[in-house]
């Protein structure tokens, strides 16, 4: 029996596909998410919208909160560590979380290097804005990728931009002749082996979810139609006026993303969505997506 293999790390992400991973800050929210049909929860001290509002340095959550959430639900529990903060990651592994998100939503601990994720038995998910960034993270050991979007804004525009960039990158590589792949790898800043693999298979070697800005069932279905394998919803659920109803509706829309009738139906009477932010109004030093190297 062998634990912590690449197969079981990437395999758990495959089991999450077609599902919704919800940010929660306490056991009560975690229960609401599980009951609504979430395929996993992300245990946090504050949702991204509150992290954004609070400013300062955002760190790994208090383990007490993470453990309380792990006790409250039977579905997988993820937790975030800072980019490059491998000791926070070690602590999260020791707690027994099911997936670690090395996340740009927290304040980076290292402005040049990410965690060498192959050293861990627990799998990692990392954010990306384009294919090159995705392949760098996978080479470091990320067993799952998510497009970053702009967390805590309730605005889908960046999520769309990043998903299109990844999918365009894949389409471009598929049509790149063999002899140009090395130059492509250099230009993308991605390992040649992974560039070749995408060229050959026409897809990412790991599961890719959408994140950062999903606030409505239609947002979730939009990301699925653009090619996401599933969605993360951060502030979008528990910053809305009726979290339970919205959570259920987003779960349904993610499964039935190709069925406009169902999307229309589940979008009815959900109350107020979370307040949104115009990305152009956010000072560039406060944007989260550019964090990551």
């Amino acid at each position: 029996m062998e634990t912590g293999t690449w197969k079981v790390k990437t395999g758990l992400a495959q089991m999450l596909k077609g599902g919704v991973i919800m940010d929660v800050v306490n056991p009560e929210q975690a229960k609401i998410a599980e009951e609504a049909g979430a395929c996993a929860v992300m245990a946090l001290e504050r949702v991204p919208a509150d992290i954004r509002a609070a400013g300062g340095v955002a760190r790994m959550a208090d383990p007490t909160i993470i453990e309380a959430i792990m006790k409250a639900v039977s579905i997988p529990v993820m937790a975030k560590c800072r980019i490059g903060h491998f000791v926070e990651a070690q602590a999260l592994e020791a707690l027994g979380v099911d997936y670690i998100d090395e996340s740009e939503v927290l304040t980076p601990a290292d402005e040049s290097h990410h965690i060498w994720k192959h050293d861990f038995k627990v799998p990692f998910v990392c954010g990306c804005r384009n294919l090159g960034e995705a392949l760098r993270r996978i080479a470091e050991g990320a067993a799952m990728i998510r497009t970053k979007g702009e967390a805590g804004t309730g605005n889908i525009v960046e999520a769309v931009r990043h998903m299109r960039a990844v999918m365009d990158g894949i389409r471009e590589l598929v049509n790149t002749p063999q002899e140009e792949l090395m130059a492509k790898a250099k230009e993308m800043g991605a390992p040649f082996e992974l560039v070749s693999e995408v060229h050959r298979t026409g897809k990412l070697p790991v599961v890719n979810f959408a994140a950062g800005g999903v606030a409505t069932p239609a947002d979730a279905a939009l990301m699925m139609q653009l090619g996401a394998d599933g969605v993360f919803v951060g502030s979008g659920i528990f910053k809305s006026s009726n979290p339970a109803a919205r959570a259920q509706a987003i779960v349904k829309a993610t499964t039935h993303y190709q069925d406009p009738q169902i999307i229309a139906e589940v979008s009815k009477n959900l109350g107020e969505a979370m307040p949104g932010l115009d990305i152009k109004q956010i000072p560039s030093e406060e944007l989260l997506a550019p964090r990551g190297w």
Binding site: M1, G4, M15, M70, P123
Partner: peptide, 28 residues
């Protein structure tokens, strides 16, 4: 078997499939 940390791979003997062991991938 526990949480993701305890997910594992193991070769399984499955008589109805013949002698060759089957690769068992156990995830949570």
């Amino acid at each position: 078997f526990g949480r993701q940390r305890e997910s594992f791979e193991a070769e399984l003997s499955v008589p109805v499939l013949g002698e060759k062991p089957f690769p068992g991938v156990f995830i949570r």
